[in-house]
Design a protein around this nucleic acid. Structure first.
Lengths: 249, 249
DNA sequence: AAAGTATAAATGTCAGGACATACTCTTGAC
DNA sequence: GTCAAGAGTATGTCCTGACATTTATACTTT
């Protein structure tokens, strides 16, 4: 059962580059899946052949393939071979912010900071694994796009980020500000629900009649497990839904 | 910087077992984290030492550790060592069904099948990557717990599962039935939103006054990328919220 | 013709070794 | 006393090699 008909994607390897070989391979092959050079269902070049063709060891090629499998780009079955996965199961990078999401859709997000002050909040502190009386930076923002409001976002930030200014937050998204400070949120626990808006929320979101809001609370942590942010967001359900990929491992 | 104070967890390895050595190691060390023998922040035995102690090669031990890192149990930093992660970032197995969720909480889910028929549905068929006129099994169920309804669940199933009976569905959850048929959903794309209920939904869920519903549509696939199920669910927002872990990779 | 049986192809597991790189802490120079 | 260089330690990358297991196909036998 030799792999026949597998389109040979050209891969160029730079051994001087600091980026790992397996990642160079995964990147270039992922691009081939993304731009359609490799189609869903297509057989994928087998490990050993690919390793030989690229002049790499099998473990290195294997790791590249594993990286693509983890992203849902490829499917491997023992004895059967590797194939390009159904397009619907491709996972995108997750943990994006509303700001990034809107920008990716080609819309222009606008942010107004409504509150910006130091407070002690027991619920937020416990979510962030801090002492109950720790002073946190409370930020309430209204985010809009295309001229009308979409979300009211309440966030609590730990002391080391208490010096973030209103201006920074109005220019860009919270996650972009954090990334700029060298913080990379890596894991988040989110709880999503729905309810009727409070009167403040109705005013901020310009809601009339019987329109519910979609709510999300989030605790975000960096790779080492330090708390980054606790948030309580509230979206116009009419204009926004949350899209996620879930997978079993 | 020798790893000192690292609690040595005893690990027993069965080389005759069909379960991979790296998984045996990961399982036993994960248990040590779960039951508190290893505490968050504790230094973890370093790779080479652990490999030597267990009589395994470094790659094998490394893979076990990687498995735990992927689950958020451990944090590795180059030059620094491996440590037990903050408890809040531990990821749980996802892709559970409402039935399993309720049972885990110690509640008793009850299901009533409202509709059960073969239909052709263009939207569902396209979500499942099938021809638009493919006959699908349409199932509408009302799920309740503790005496009152929680969700109205509409699902479309591909032809190979069209023989699932009303009885099977009332006894247990859809995912349990599918697992019983050898199908393991592995990836799902979910979209979560909120809206006001339709009159049918109000009646099924026993809603009065102004109460919104939380909605979720889901496309589920097995490990090989074959469509398993397309669902459109609708929950009493008062009694239910969706809990997820998101992570960047 | 149908059933069971070898065979080949592919991925899965495991070993052992070599060198690179990041981080911390100590030592030494100014 | 402060800062920079270096030693030490741990993880990260990459290699070669070997054998196991699963699956489909072609072949043989009944």
């Amino acid at each position: 059962m030799q792999t026949v008909g597998a389109h040979l994607v050209s891969v160029e390897i730079d051994r001087e580059s600091p980026v790992p070989l397996y990642h160079q391979v995964a990147e270039q092959l992922s691009a081939a899946v993304a731009d359609g050079r490799l189609q869903p269902g297509d057989p994928f070049e087998n490990e050993v052949a690919l390793a030989q063709r690229l002049g790499l060891s099998r473990p290195t090629v294997r790791r590249a393939i594993q990286e693509m499998v983890d992203q849902g780009l490829l499917v491997r079955r023992r004895g059967l071979g590797t194939h390009v996965a159904n397009r619907k199961v491709h996972r995108r990078a997750e943990l994006t912010s509303l700001f990034d999401d809107l920008r990716r859709e080609g819309r222009t997000p606008v942010t107004t900071v409504v509150r910006h002050e130091l407070v002690a909040d027991e619920r937020a502190a416990s979510a962030l694994d801090l002492e109950p009386d720790t002073p946190l930076l409370l930020v309430v923002r209204v985010r809009g796009a295309d001229g009308h409001p979409i979300a009211v976002m309440t966030n609590w930030l730990p002391p080391q980020h208490a010096d973030i200014t209103r201006e920074e937050l109005e220019d860009t998204g919270l996650y972009a500000v954090l990334r700029g400070r060298g913080v990379r949120p890596a894991v988040a626990r989110q709880t999503i629900g729905a309810r009727m808006p409070t009167s403040v929320e109705r005013r901020h979101l310009g809601l009339r009649g019987q329109q519910p809001v979609l709510t999300m609370t989030r605790m975000a942590f960096d790779a080492s497990g330090r708390a980054v942010e606790f948030g309580d967001h509230c979206y116009r359900a009419e204009d926004y839904s949350i899209d996620i990929m879930v997978d079993e491992r």
